[in-house]
Design a protein around this nucleic acid. Structure first.
Lengths: 144, 144
DNA sequence: CTTTAACCATTAGCCTGCTAATTAACAGAT
DNA sequence: ATCTGTTAATTAGCAGGCTAATGGTTAAAG
């Protein structure tokens, strides 16, 4: 049996390498990959609860919590308790959290180009579609 | 700027979910994803040095070392020093390491089908090709 | 032969995932 | 009003990535 030709195996290698690549390139601007993914979600809309961010990112609450602690230490977000529900917290961007977006955008575009460098425009589109299907499977089915 | 439509972002989500999915499904047969990837490499050819396995898997030596320690604890491989070079070690499969292959194959095929369930045969091929290109980019360029 | 450089494995320590277990707070049913 | 169940955040601890730093060997230069 040839494990190495399965999509699962191929995807495993690409997944690890991609994460590692992101970590290295984003580290250049002082951020970690998990933090950036989180910021992207907050730039869409902040003030949400941790559990909502977890659902949106398809990541477990403890991981969200840890990532946010790092962002708070970095001064990018705040974790506020609101009176309507003492259990939950609300995550808000600080001015720094808003401001860093510009730097991240520039870096992100560079990264995107690096990765897609050898793909034609048509291939990029197809890759996006196929990845979207996989994402839909995982994000939809995962929780079981 | 729409981060969420970039391939990097899409791939990040899929990468995390895929790893997580593998971990859960492989955990059912008592193995971790990193261990299985390592075993697959050893089933191709064992007796290699850690640094060679690291290069083949595109993973840093300390990570290889940790994964192997787990496999040794599980009784799947041995780490032997050979006389020709006292710096390096050679990694060999134990009978258990050879035997577990059958179980992993069955599980791996199931996982593969789960993931590809909603893709047509043509899409699977295209996805393989595109992932191979990405892998080639990462595995080739990464070390820099 | 000795000094220097390169190489291999390991350790320590960090980030990002996870699950399981705690604690606190809300909600519902009685 | 209370008891029970659910929900939110957090803590602890593990796997699997990484880099940086050690220690020991080998190889190369001198």
């Amino acid at each position: 049996m040839k494990f190495h030709s399965t999509v699962s195996h191929l995807l495993s290698g690409v997944a690890t390498a991609h994460k590692s690549h992101l970590e290295r390139r984003l580290g250049e601007i002082g951020l970690h990959s998990g933090q950036v993914l989180m910021l992207m979600e907050l730039w869409k809309r902040d003030g949400r609860r941790q559990v909502d961010l977890a659902a949106e990112l398809n990541i477990a609450p403890p991981t969200i919590n840890k990532t946010l602690t790092g962002l708070i230490d970095g001064g990018y977000v705040t974790r506020d308790r609101v009176e309507d529900d003492a259990r939950s917290t609300r995550i808000f961007l600080t001015p720094e959290g808003v401001a860093v977006r510009e730097k991240v955008e520039a870096q992100w575009l560079e990264i995107e180009e690096e990765i897609l460098g050898e793909l034609t425009e048509a291939e990029r589109l197809i890759l996006s579609e196929l990845l979207s299907k996989l994402k839909h499977f995982y994000f939809g089915t995962e929780p079981e």
